[in-house]
Amino acid sequence: MNGEEIVELKNVTKYFEKGFIKKVRNYAVIDVSLKIRKGEIITLIGESSCGKTTLGRIVAGLIRPSKGKVLWFGKDLWRMSKREFNRYRPLIQVVHQDPYASLNPTRTIYQILSPIIKKYYKPKSKSDLLREVKNLLGYVGLTPPDYFLNKYPHHLSGGMKQRLAFARSLIPKPKLIVADEPVSMIDMSLRLSVLGLMKKLNEDLGIAFIYISHDIATARFFADKATLALMYLGRILEIGSMDEVIRTPMHPYLRAILSASPIPDPRIAKRRRKIELKSLEVPREVVQLKGCPFSPRCPYSEDVCFENTPSLKRCSGHEVACHLVDKLPEWVPPWQVMV
């Protein structure tokens, strides 16, 4: 332990049980290990119901994993004393997807921010408090701050609301922010500016990020030096640096998603050929624990894929969980063919 790790997950599994007499286990996260170091960015990419939000909540200590360990600053989160927990808790913040729901609609911006600033900064006077609130608003780009102080959340656009949510999460000087789809509900033209704010927080303040999204393009804009982890049905299938993973995607699922990602360029987009999967639907009912989770949809799957679960192995600079990694056909992303 070199003290650099903020959160470490060790073989974390989370299932939800349903049913009263006959319990059915619904696996959301299966055997995931992950380390987040100081100032690092990890982007979790996956389609809906792949377990990425659950994983984010486990990292943030909001839910307890069924199996495995969560370490915060090297200490077991679910065994630490209450005092320790209270010390670490503020250092790991969450920004949610829906800024319309995460801000109290009956309070002004000043009323939302000032109690938290009071608690953490203990300002000596009212004018100190006001100055802190204004500084914070200015820092996240809600300028001029005086204009915003007495506004209610419904006066703000989606992008501004999300800036306010970030402002609030910054007050305890966090080391890590778990950002769960922070831009998916914001307009195209404003997404970049919110991503830009996150970038600034990472670069200026050294805050580590777990960025959860289904959209590789926004992840790529946020941090080209980040680690990209691809999730599918609770498992991580491919993990490596963003650059490399996008340049040489290995897992058939990642290739399929990349081949299907829309590209804002009509000449490339109109000639795009996507990789056809065996089935369009994600099997939702029961998560199978045997075999590769992607095997029923994978166009290349063989017998071995249905029998054994592949583990992450090193392959062309990143880690991939696929049995057929050496047998896969060459594949070049569509935009590279054109350029």
Binding site: S157, S189, L190, L192, S193, F221
Partner: peptide, 24 residues
């Protein structure tokens, strides 16, 4: 033009992408 430059994309240099200043 600004709108097209403001879309995150899988191609091209990410630093070319610029948000539109101001709001609607």
């Amino acid at each position: 033009n600004l709108l097209i430059k403001a879309i995150p994309s899988l191609i091209g240099d990410p630093s070319d992408r610029k948000p539109i200043p101001g709001s609607p």
